[in-house]
């Protein structure tokens, strides 16, 4: 469990890196937005990992009562909210991209900049 625990943190860090890199280094606007989603997904993973309790189960009381160990419900609640925020940002971003394509005829950042410079 200990190895897996450390592995989770590393995966979080690497995912964060991959997503963040795509946001900064990619010039295609859709690719940037996908990178942003990956970047946020990494943070979701961090929170959910934090909430895990070893040997616990999902925090839903089963009908057969009895003291069981439950994982922490709070990070799950926070991430539910964060996922929704993420999809909302994506939807709005895509709306902007569609309008950019209509106005400029391209969704590549450097081409947009060139058109604006003229």
């Amino acid at each position: 469990m200990n190895f897996l625990g450390i592995y989770y943190y590393w995966v979080f860090a690497i995912l964060l890196m991959v997503g963040f890199y795509a946001v900064i280094a990619k010039l295609n606007l859709i690719k940037k937005l996908i990178g942003l989603s990956l970047f946020q997904a990494a943070v979701f993973l961090l929170y959910i990992t934090v909430g895990k309790v070893e040997g616990g189960t999902a925090p839903i009381f089963a009908s057969a009562a009895g003291e069981r160990l439950f994982s922490n419900p709070l990070p799950q609640v926070l991430i539910l909210t964060a996922i929704v925020v993420g999809i909302s940002t994506t939807a709005l971003g895509l709306g902007i991209i569609v309008r950019i394509k209509e106005e400029y005829g391209t969704i590549e950042e450097q081409e947009i900049q060139e058109i604006d410079r003229q």
Binding site: A25, L27, N28, I30, T90, I97, K101, I107, E108
Partner: peptide, 23 residues
């Protein structure tokens, strides 16, 4: 989100041109 991305792709482009910025 897949549905939204696909709708947006249909309205924009299917490939990216220059993969990376100079920085």
């Amino acid at each position: 989100s897949t549905v939204l991305y696909l709708s947006a792709l249909a309205l924009s482009a299917e490939n990216e041109r220059a993969p990376y910025s100079s920085h």
